[in-house]
């Protein structure tokens, strides 16, 4: 038990440092890119004096470190700031109104925007991973168990095929086939769960090749371990050796791959897929924010993404040390 507490205490404190660093980098970058955020907030019509006054009021003329400190303090209380552009009602307001001042209360809170979008993204990501696992686990295991024979080839061909398909193209084709042509599933926007299915398939096509490769390599490698062949001679059946030992051992590298690689791919995939399908998740929110230079949203999403990465890696590592006690914790 002690090791679990120590593990989490240490990893959480390390994680906080990482997230803080990421936050700092993003925060600074967004403040040194060209373009005065005041122009974005107040629009081209605002006068220079209003601009300066509002900037001072918002603290945007303070030294960077002070701004960052203030920001961290706010984040700690759960306040991620307010959008520059989006109104409380949801529409974009930037650039036209408020020419004579800026009332932060009239803009949507970033935390609220994210809280609205997050469930959609989680649902999409969860379904995408589930689809990918559904395809990759059987193919990967079959390929790993039959290295060099036809299931292995199938695994190889499927993954190379999937890798070579750009997800935009997959999305378009699926919309055409499943939605436009047959009318089986809706595709664009979101009005119910069924809107998640096609985007999730696109996501799965992107994720599964890596999974297939990883599973088959890891299973094949464990089949080559001495304990497998010795197990058979010890009198344990092939089925039990695979089911109870090979798969268990194969899970460790897989989980690490998941933490290290898949999460990054998943985040990237979400952005593109949500954009293609106008799916109202975090990806969509962020891409719009990028186009509109809505910095508070961008920085909040970036920080959350790094926190998610840190947390998932922590959980994955913990699970790995539970399976394989040799690993350093």
């Amino acid at each position: 038990m002690a090791f679990a507490i120590e593990f989490f205490l240490r990893r959480i404190s390390q994680g906080l440092v990482i997230v803080l660093l990421v936050a700092f980098v993003i925060f600074t970058l967004l403040r040194i890119v060209p373009g005065d955020p005041m122009r974005i907030i107040l629009g081209p019509m605002a006068s220079q004096t209003t601009l300066e006054e509002t900037a001072k009021e918002l603290g945007l003329r303070d030294p960077m470190l002070i701004q960052f400190g203030r920001f961290v303090g706010e984040v700690a209380t759960g306040d991620l700031g307010r959008s520059y552009i989006r109104g409380v009602q949801g529409g974009s307001t930037g650039g036209s109104q408020d020419a004579d001042g800026f009332d932060p209360e009239s803009r949507a809170s970033v935390a609220g925007l994210i809280a609205n979008a997050l469930p959609y993204s989680l649902m999409l990501a969860g379904l995408g991973i589930a689809f990918a696992l559904l395809v990759a686990v059987p193919i990967g295991i079959a390929a790993g168990l039959n290295a060099g024979r036809w299931p292995d080839k199938i695994g190889l061909y499927t993954s190379s095929l999937f890798v070579s398909l750009p997800n935009i193209w997959v999305g378009v084709v699926l919309i055409f086939l499943l939605s436009a042509k047959t009318g089986w599933l809706p595709a664009i926007g979101y009005r119910g769960f069924e809107y998640t299915i096609i985007p999730a398939i696109v996501l799965a096509v992107e994720l599964s090749p890596v999974m297939i490769r990883a599973i088959s390599v890891s299973v094949a490698q464990n089949l080559g371990e001495t304990f497998y062949s010795v197990g058979l001679v010890r009198g344990i059946s092939r089925r039990d050796m695979i089911g109870k030992h090979v798969l268990r051992n194969a899970a460790v590298p897989l989980m690490n791959l998941f933490g290290a690689q898949m999460i990054g791919m998943l985040l990237g995939g979400l952005f593109v897929v949500e954009y293609i399908f106008s799916y109202p998740g975090i990806g969509m929110l962020t891409i719009n924010a990028v186009f509109q230079r809505d910095f508070p949203i961008i920085q909040a999403v970036a920080i959350l993404a790094s926190a998610a990465l840190v947390i998932i890696n922590m959980l994955v590592d913990f699970a790995s040390t539970l399976i394989d006690r040799r690993l350093k914790f």
Binding site: T226, F227, V230, N249
Partner: peptide, 23 residues
């Protein structure tokens, strides 16, 4: 298979890698 491990037992030269390391 039915004989191995029951009536016929085998021990090899590599004890440290003969068992699943995670159990």
């Amino acid at each position: 298979n039915a004989l191995r491990g029951r009536e016929l037992a085998y021990i090899g030269a590599n004890p440290t890698s003969a068992l699943d390391p995670t159990i």
